[in-house]
Amino acid sequence: MSTSVTVTIDDRQIKARAGEKLLWVALENGIYIPHLCAIKEESRPNASCRLCFVEIEGVDRPVTSCTRPIEEGMVVKTRSLRVDRLVKTAFELILSDHNLKCRECPANRNCVLQAIAKERRIKLRYDRFKPIVREFALDDSPAEFAFDRSRCVLCGKCIRADREEAKIGAIGFARRGINRVVTTFKDLPLAESICTECMLCVDVCPVGALYYKKSQRQKKGNPLDYPGNKSSG
């Protein structure tokens, strides 16, 4: 039996299993912390989106809550000047590399970026940073879905679905730095790759990068849907 500890998040005392990551403890107790790449089941968090910063008393700088196991007596603030500044910059950086034509996007009104923007009151437009211009060809080769890389935020959830759930291995990360992409072997269109078009990846995509071509079909999972989330819907 695992021991439980008490932590204070935004002045609320919360009991949870020791060692549990702060992000999930907060979310499960209805306290929102922005996040894109976190997957609860992963033992080693990806920690790549850099949106889930919080302040912990006694720690000299904001830390990512997805990587931080809770400890007895931990006092956490999900908002502070420093946290808000980092989250805003990270979010704006992500936007600068994201196709912001929301009205044309199938995930419009069902997009994590929109939810975060609303919650943190950050405008969904290119502001401090100029958009990074590049050409991505739309991959609409699969029968029922398509992949628009101009909307991809590199959270890696589709790759996990492909590997851990579908057990295929059709997609993965390739290249480096600013050119990092989710792609197939040799950059083949999905339909020409070993992809079985099971569409598990489509359901986990938190934005409109992987989407169903027929607009009446909705993603199974609502990216904002987790216990206690009051801002969803």
Binding site: A170, I171, G172, F173, A174, R175, R176, T184, F185, K186
Partner: peptide
């Protein structure tokens, strides 16, 4: 026995 996508990812990294 690794996905070809991984070999490609590595070779391009």
């Amino acid at each position: 026995h690794v996905p070809a996508a991984d070999v490609y990812g590595l070779a391009t990294f």
